[in-house]
Simulated assay, not measured.
Amino acid sequence: MGNWFSLVFVAVIVGAVACFRLVRKSINRKAAQSGEDKRRVHKAVEPLLATDGNFQTLYAHWEKKESYARAVWTTYYRYMVAYQGETLCIIPLHIDKKTREIQLGQPSVFSPENLGKVTVKTKQKDGVVEHIEIWLGNKQGEKLFELYVDAENLRKSRWYLVNIVQQEECAAFERFISSLAQRVAAENPGVDDLIKKSVNEGKGIIGAGVSIVGAVFAFFFPPAGIVLSLIGLLLCIVSKLKGANSKKPLIISIICTIWSAGFLWLFFAIFV
């Protein structure tokens, strides 16, 4: 009898939570349809764009996730995107969680003159654009900006601060950013090779780091130390074979591997 009571109690709790979420989503969706938050964010950036031509605008956001041991720290960013012709302007927004007051940050302006790579990923449902992921890089292949644009933005938690529906704006922006990406790609055909080299350089740096950790482990447990050093050395060799320019990671890994091998020899000479 007790087990049945527990199962019914859990089912009631789960059902209540699900109903609460559905009701809250319905309320937020109705609020988004009213356009109140959309008017507020558009009004906030109007003074900044009033003298700069006929910009089209829409709301965007970005979530930066960083891992610290077992914890994951997420930072939420909010933007207003304005664009016309081949110019893209991204304006940071600070929205007070209590007062709903909106403050503007320093805008960033991008165009084919300072862009070397634009990556666009879209998600559609029934032929309608729902979500766009944009990555902007300079002519050296280095990241300049990253952001998301959603057709529907709802206050699903205290970190999501607006109820905005912008299907038409999202579709228009997808056409703009895809066109911009094509032009930038045509004018910078060598950027993809630079990005690949940068990725390979990163593998070499990671390999050097693994080898250094292996050298430290060699003090306490040489077998583990030599394994880590060899893994790091392998990463550095692969990085170099794929076109990495820097020799430092490879040199560091070789030194660490020799160091770890020396401690491994001592280990077997003394204890085996």
Rank of each mutant, 00 (worst) to 15 (best):
V162R: 08
V162Y: 03
N163S: 07
N163I: 08
N163Y: 04
I164Y: 03
I164Q: 05
I164A: 08
I164P: 06
V165M: 13
E168I: 07
E168A: 13
E169N: 04
C170P: 03
C170Y: 07
C170T: 14
A171T: 11
A172V: 09
F173R: 12
E174Y: 11
E174Q: 09
E174P: 04
E174T: 14
R175Y: 11
R175H: 15
F176D: 09
S178I: 06
L180H: 02
L180P: 00
L180Q: 03
L180V: 01
A181D: 02
Q182V: 02
R183G: 04
R183I: 00
V184S: 06
A186E: 07
A186N: 08
E187H: 02
G190V: 06
V191P: 04
D193C: 05
L194M: 12
L194N: 03
K196V: 10
N200W: 13
E201T: 13
K203A: 12
I205V: 15
I205T: 13
I205R: 12
G207D: 01
A208T: 02
A208I: 00
G209F: 02
G209C: 08
V210Y: 00
V210I: 15
S211D: 04
V213Q: 09
V213P: 00
A215R: 05
A215I: 01
A215W: 02
F217R: 00
A218Y: 02
F219N: 02
F219S: 00
F220Q: 01
F221N: 10
F221R: 05
A224R: 06
A224I: 13
G225A: 03
I226D: 00
L228K: 05
S229L: 07
